[in-house]
Amino acid sequence: MFGDADPVEWKGHAPQAYPVHGIDVSRYQGNIDWPTARAYGVSFAFIKATEGADHADSSFSSHWYGATLAGVPHGAYHFYYFCRSAEEQANWFIANVPKERGALPPVLDLEWNAGSRTCPYRPDSETVLSEVQTFLNIVGRHYDQQPIVYTTPDFWQHNQLWRLHGAQPWLRSVAAHPSERYPGEEWTFWQYSGTGLVPGVAGQVDLNTFAGSRRDWSAWVADQAL
């Protein structure tokens, strides 16, 4: 029931083959009509909470509250900043994201940010893995959940993210099934579009699907939610 401003002609496994879909949002989506979004098929949402060790998304609270009222399962995500320590960033996320019953696992967004004016630093893969593992360990212990790691094909490959422990993959692949971009890798969520059109959301929004049936989804939420 979603549209797309830049649709892809899928070959092989298309996202429509999966029954459970959702969105990820930040302040750029503005105000969201969450009941309408849910009515048109939004089964989950990941909401930007923090970035680095001193930036909080200005729409986090309103999105979090709106999704809660509408009954949309939701979790928070942190955009990693390579010029601050993992400990600082984990503590900043914890300070801004409530430990709330029913919340989905915390998400760490890992991607190179070539356009950053303040942090063009690209550490080597061993440093990335060590720091990311520290973040996941701290946040996972605090929320007593197995975190989710969102990433892109280039970041995944360059940093060998399959070597991480205690994280569930959320993989971006907007022109092909994840099996083509991440061969042999199991995934929990797949981001298949960055140009989605969803009733209740003004403008474009990222679209995602869960790797399983509706029954699998219900079981996963029962097992993973706080």
Results as ranks from 00 to 15, higher is better:
residue 205 V to N: 10
residue 84 R to Y: 14
residue 20 V to G: 06
residue 189 F to R: 00
residue 85 S to H: 12
residue 33 D to K: 05
residue 134 T to A: 15
residue 36 T to G: 08
residue 24 D to Y: 08
residue 186 E to H: 15
residue 44 F to D: 10
residue 216 D to C: 05
residue 159 N to W: 01
residue 132 V to F: 07
residue 81 Y to P: 04
residue 48 K to A: 05
residue 168 Q to M: 07
residue 216 D to M: 12
residue 32 I to W: 02
residue 191 Q to F: 00
residue 209 T to C: 12
residue 121 Y to S: 15
residue 76 A to D: 03
residue 30 G to M: 03
residue 102 G to K: 06
residue 155 F to A: 01
residue 151 T to A: 00
residue 88 E to C: 09
residue 123 P to C: 05
residue 92 W to S: 01
residue 163 R to L: 15
residue 49 A to E: 14
residue 29 Q to N: 14
residue 167 A to V: 05
residue 106 P to C: 03
residue 193 S to D: 12
residue 67 A to H: 04
residue 196 G to C: 06
residue 185 E to T: 12
residue 173 S to W: 06
residue 127 T to P: 03
residue 164 L to M: 14
residue 183 P to R: 12
residue 164 L to S: 12
residue 137 N to C: 06
residue 84 R to H: 14
residue 190 W to P: 06
residue 130 S to I: 05
residue 50 T to L: 12
residue 118 T to E: 08
residue 64 W to V: 02
residue 39 A to M: 10
residue 35 P to R: 10
residue 63 H to S: 12
residue 18 Y to Q: 07
residue 39 A to C: 09
residue 188 T to P: 06
residue 8 V to E: 04
residue 121 Y to M: 14
residue 33 D to G: 06
residue 138 I to D: 08
residue 198 V to M: 08
residue 180 E to A: 14
residue 41 G to Y: 12
residue 53 A to G: 11
residue 214 R to L: 14
